[in-house]
Design a protein around this nucleic acid. Structure first.
Lengths: 259, 259
DNA sequence: AAGTGGTCTAGACCACTCT
DNA sequence: GAGTGGTCTAGACCACTTG
C-alpha cells in the first residue's frame, strides 16, 4: 500500500482510493489523474510546448504508481493533448513549432506539397449573430471578433475562411497582431491568449460559389466549393471558435481517414 | 522467467524474447502478438463477429504475460479491429450486426436520423480501367466487378455510389446476391467473401452534377455535389475496394472529427 | 552516467455478464 | 460462482537522449 499523496489529493466525490469506489458512477484512478493533468494544462501551469514532470515524478506527487500515471498520459497522448518523446520526456502538444503545421487543415494538393501563403482580409469586433452565438453557447449580441482570410497555394487562392471568436477570450486581437505572426493562427492563440484547441468537429457540404466568394477565390460564380464548418473546442469541451471555410477543390482535395 | 511458448512460437527474425532484441529494427513482444492475432483474423480462423479466446488463454498459448496480450488487444481495439466487452470477452469487429451500421459512411441528416433505403442500379463484370487498376494495385484489364447503387432517405436520393471490386476476390457476386442481402455491403463482403474492411482513405471534392448523376439524384444539372473517393483496405493494408460516391448535401452533411 | 519513456512480468482485486 | 475484461501495484530491465 502506497503512502498518502504527497501534495495534490484525490478529492473527487466518493473516490480517492479505488477500494472506496462502489458500483454507481465508478471512475478509475487513472481517469482522475488524467483530469488532474488536464487541470494543470487548463490553468496554464504547464504551457503549450513545455516539458511536463516525468511519470515517476507525477506518480509520487499524486500518490499512485507509475503505471497509473502512464495510462492517463497514454490516453492524453492518443488524443493529441500530450506528446511523448522517449528519453526526453512528455510535452504539452502545440499547434505551433510542429512538423505538421495546420494540424486541423485536411486540404491536400493533388501534386507536391507547397506551403500556403496567408492573406488577411479583415479583422473586426462584432456583435454575435444568433446562429454564431448558439453554436458557441453564447448570447446573441455578445462581443466577438470576426476574422476573414485567404490561403493561397503558389499564388492561386484555395481557402476562404470566416472565423468567429469570443471577444472576451481574445481581447487584444487585431489585424496588426495577426499580420505580425508567422504560422497557423492556432499557434498565436496559444502563446498570446492561452487558448489551446484540442479537437474540432466539421460539417462538410458542397455549395455553389456566390459572387463575393467567387471573386476572392477566382472561380466562376456558381462553381462548386467545399463548405467546411468547423467548431473547435478547448479543455473541458468548451467551444471557442466557429469557422466557415470555402475550399476550392480544383487542384486540392480534403483528405480523411476512416477506421 | 516464463516457460517456453506452449504452441505458437515467436519466430520473427532476431526476436523471440525481448532479451534477444538489439537496437536495429527492434519489435516489442506485444507487436508480435498483435501480428499473430491479425494472422488469425486474416486466415479466417477467427471470423467477423466471433468471440476470440480470453486474454489469459492467449497469454498461455503465446507464452507471454496477460499484460502483453492486453497491450496488443488494446491497440487492435483502438483500431476497431476487435471489440472488447467487459464480462463477456473480446470479439472480432464486424460491419454487420453493429449498432452503428454504415461504419464508414459519414453522412448525417440535418435533422432526425432516418434509415437509408438501398436501390441497386447495376452490377456487372468489367475489365479494370487504368485509373481503377492503379489505385487497387492491379493491372489494366484485370477482371473486376462494378456495382452502382443509390441510397435514399425518406424517398429522396442522397448518395450515388460507383463501386469497383477485384473480380478474383468476389467470384460469386451478382445483383441477386446483393438484393437478397440486408444491411451494408461490407457485412455481406465479410460473410460471403471473407473480405473484411478495416480502414479506408477518402478524398473529398466539390463537383458539379453531370446529366446522369443529376437525373439519378434528382438535382439540377450543375448542382454542387460532394465527391467522395474511397479506397478501402483489408488486413495487411491491401486495397480491395475503390468507391466513388456523389453525395447530395442539401439536407445532409459529411461529419468529421479532428484531433 | 543519469534520467526519461517503453516493455514485460506476476499477482491482487474490482466490475461486469452469464448461468 | 465462474469467467471475462478492467484497474492497480511493484519491480525489473531495455531503448533512447542528454550532459
Amino acid at each position: 500500500m502506497p503512502a498518502a499523496p504527497a501534495t495534490t489529493l484525490l478529492n473527487a466525490p466518493e473516490v480517492g482510493r479505488p477500494e472506496a469506489a462502489t458500483s454507481p458512477s465508478f471512475s478509475p484512478l487513472y481517469a482522475q489523474i488524467k483530469a488532474l493533468i488536464i487541470a494543470k494544462l487548463q490553468s496554464g501551469e504547464w504551457k503549450a510546448g513545455e516539458l511536463i514532470p516525468s511519470e515517476l515524478d507525477l506518480a509520487k506527487r499524486f500518490g499512485v504508481s507509475q503505471g497509473t500515471v502512464r495510462k492517463a498520459v497514454d490516453e492524453m497522448a492518443a488524443e493529441n493533448m500530450l506528446v511523448r518523446r522517449q528519453g526526453r520526456g512528455t510535452f504539452v502538444a502545440t499547434h505551433a513549432e510542429q512538423k505538421v503545421q495546420y494540424r486541423f487543415l485536411r486540404l491536400m494538393p493533388d501534386q507536391g506539397s507547397e506551403a500556403l501563403e496567408r492573406q488577411l482580409l479583415d479583422c473586426r469586433r462584432q456583435r454575435a449573430p444568433a446562429a454564431i452565438a448558439r453554436a458557441l453557447q453564447m448570447r446573441t449580441g455578445d462581443p466577438m471578433v470576426e476574422v476573414r482570410r485567404l490561403l493561397s497555394s503558389k499564388g492561386a487562392p484555395v481557402v476562404l475562411d470566416d472565423i468567429w471568436l469570443p471577444g472576451d477570450l481574445f481581447k487584444g486581437l487585431s489585424a496588426e497582431r495577426l499580420n505580425l505572426h508567422r504560422g497557423p493562427f492556432y499557434g498565436l492563440f496559444e502563446t498570446e491568449f492561452g487558448v489551446h484547441m484540442i479537437r474540432a468537429e466539421e460539417k462538410i457540404r458542397a455549395v455553389a460559389a456566390d459572387a463575393e466568394s467567387a471573386a476572392l477565390l477566382q472561380v466562376p460564380v456558381g462553381a462548386p466549393l467545399l463548405s467546411v464548418e468547423r467548431l473547435s473546442f478547448t479543455y473541458g469541451d468548451k467551444a471557442v471558435e466557429l469557422r466557415r471555410g470555402l475550399y476550392s477543390t480544383a487542384s486540392h482535395f480534403y483528405r480523411n481517414e476512416l477506421n
